[in-house]
Amino acid sequence: MRFIYTKAFAIFFACLVLLVFLVFFQTKGWLDPVRNAVLQSPRPVIYLVKGVVSPVKTFFSTVYRLKDISSENTRLNSRVLELQQNLVQYEEVLRENETLTKELGFVKNSKQSLVACTVLSHNPFGLTDSLVLNCGTESGVIEGQAAISQGYMVGKVIYSGKNSSTILLSTSSKFSTDAKVSQTNASAIVKGSFGSGLILDQVPQSTDLQKGFLAVTAGINDKIPKDILIGEVGDIVSTSNDLFKRASLVSPADFENLQFVFIVKQ
């Protein structure tokens, strides 16, 4: 008996037709309530499982990383002392700036408005470097806005539904944003590098670029405000013969284990 005349094929064909209808409804946005319900449905199980697994995982990872934690602690202590010294100098500069601003009558920029979002899914099948969040257009999240974690940019919104949105992580090879080097104000571009890091690119050769310099957003894109920290310059990977300088960027954000992010609204 030919397969196309069998009950199995009839059911398969019916499933295909139903799928076509569902794809059509999804493109129209009519499946959003169903999507929200589906995204929320396994959450009780996820919370229960994470509640059991997280302490165990933390314990074993802490034991495994004890030596690293100790050396990181020493390094961070000396960094704190260095930053405290810098802080004293910056406070002095800030006082001077405030006085000058008052005298010149400049309008101060308002503080950024942030939307706190929970990460629902890390796109668990390893196919894209993106996250699904539990906030959408109802919370004021729109496509193109920046997502930050611990003060550092971790991605930008690529899709925003009514109650959920998707962000593309900045470590993705498809990610890029305008940037500048904070210390020299030189313009640059930050790109993701195949899920494992960030690259600071197209820095003019004439500009000074050293390890420890900070890369921030330049504010050229109207949806991403300027001066959002992206990362700290690591190794310089270009040579003097290259057209532009390139360097790796180090970000303290843990891209593998993000649980909460903030979307920066204008």
Binding site: P42, P124, E256
Partner: peptide, 23 residues
Amino acid sequence: IVLLLGINLGLFGQMPIAKQVPN
């Protein structure tokens, strides 16, 4: 199916190997 999905995301989502998790 919903239970397995929750376990997949909650348990194996925290134990990726080379960014891969089972399905």
